[in-house]
Design a protein around this nucleic acid. Sequence first.
DNA 1: ATAAAAAGTAAGTAATCACTCACAAAATTG
DNA 2: CAATTTTGTGAGTGATTACTTACTTTTTAT
Lengths: 218, 218
Amino acid sequence: MTNILDTIIAQAKLSKKETVKQQRIVESAIALFAEKGYANTSTSEIARASGVAEATIFRHYGTKDNLLLSVIVPFLKEFNPLLMQDVIQTVKPEDHETFEDFLTALLRNRAAFLQENKEIFQIVVKELLYREELRKDLLPHIQLDLVLKHMYKALDRYKASGELADLPNEMLMRMIFTCIGGYFATRFILLPERSEAQYEQELKMLLRFILDGVRGKG
Amino acid sequence: MTNILDTIIAQAKLSKKETVKQQRIVESAIALFAEKGYANTSTSEIARASGVAEATIFRHYGTKDNLLLSVIVPFLKEFNPLLMQDVIQTVKPEDHETFEDFLTALLRNRAAFLQENKEIFQIVVKELLYREELRKDLLPHIQLDLVLKHMYKALDRYKASGELADLPNEMLMRMIFTCIGGYFATRFILLPERSEAQYEQELKMLLRFILDGVRGKG
DNA sequence: ATAAAAAGTAAGTAATCACTCACAAAATTG
DNA sequence: CAATTTTGTGAGTGATTACTTACTTTTTAT
């Protein structure tokens, strides 16, 4: 069996354009997968929701699994450049005097991205939780190297200015990301019904917490 | 329609004892639900895995959904007293001079509990992610009030001794729990394949991070 | 304008799903 | 021991699943 991902990417390159009906299929699939999960959504349901014959789905995507990948893969492929270029180019340490400013910009940048791609983000997280094979196939294609290098440089800069503790970059990154991940998970997946103002306030709290922990300055 | 939870609890009280085959059914169901998820596991599969006729499952549990609840509810019911009594009684602030010691004890206590109930924990998290109705029915039955009161008292104590920042208890709790939640999620759900030593080291890092954040002491 | 290719679909397919039923075996009760 | 209840099951049920096939419509290329 060949790699699913490469198959999809190759197929995506071959197909010159997306039909109107294809767009509607993917659109409906995203909404339904995000709402009820992949396994709980039937192809007939997707067909009905997108006003298309069920056979049309299979004409274009072959299998249901393939449709899921056609939804996830473009997101991950976009996620890469967006995570890399968007983050690296628009959130530069040299533009931010303090690490606090830098981290604020980074958090706002990522929060905005996830807000825009909330549904697909939900699908990716939920399905990656369930399906180990997907995890193994898809995760390696998210190349974090460049972003990590970018982040490490940023960390070094703020360590030099004494604003960050002199801890290993790896450790700092893992702590920061676990924390941010927890925040994003509760915000976009567990409790997606709060107000913007609440999110804003929580984001500020999160920042203060990441920077200073819970210990008094004594 | 009546409340699912109450129905189950009532039913559990009625059924005097668990049959050997019932135990095997629940055992197999837990393993399969945790591995492949509820929707991806068929009742025939559970029957085969537990060496029982498929009809036997429906004799005891009526529906597949009911079987899932028979797995989740006892866990949540146990979770409550265990979270409350076990935590409140064995992790007392008066036994720990510093907040660091207290938090260490708390983290170890919870980590041990989740390690023992890893599979059911995975099922609960995954299914609660997917199914809003389950969330609405089950979450209210986890009464965190007592634990929160216990924690608030602890926080006040360590605030008074100057070891904790003088921030609102609610805020402190949310930050600590988001952070711990992120750690437990990565440990027990996302990356469940690391060594004990790694977990131990990470737990220490997590503690330091919660206490001091990433900011240098300058 | 016409041939070829691509897009779309109605009406299937076999397989699997959760679940039922009639009945037998085993355990419990009087 | 006999009557009754509980536990267990083989053989189904209709519904739904992902997917196919044979065919029509639309688009594209020449």
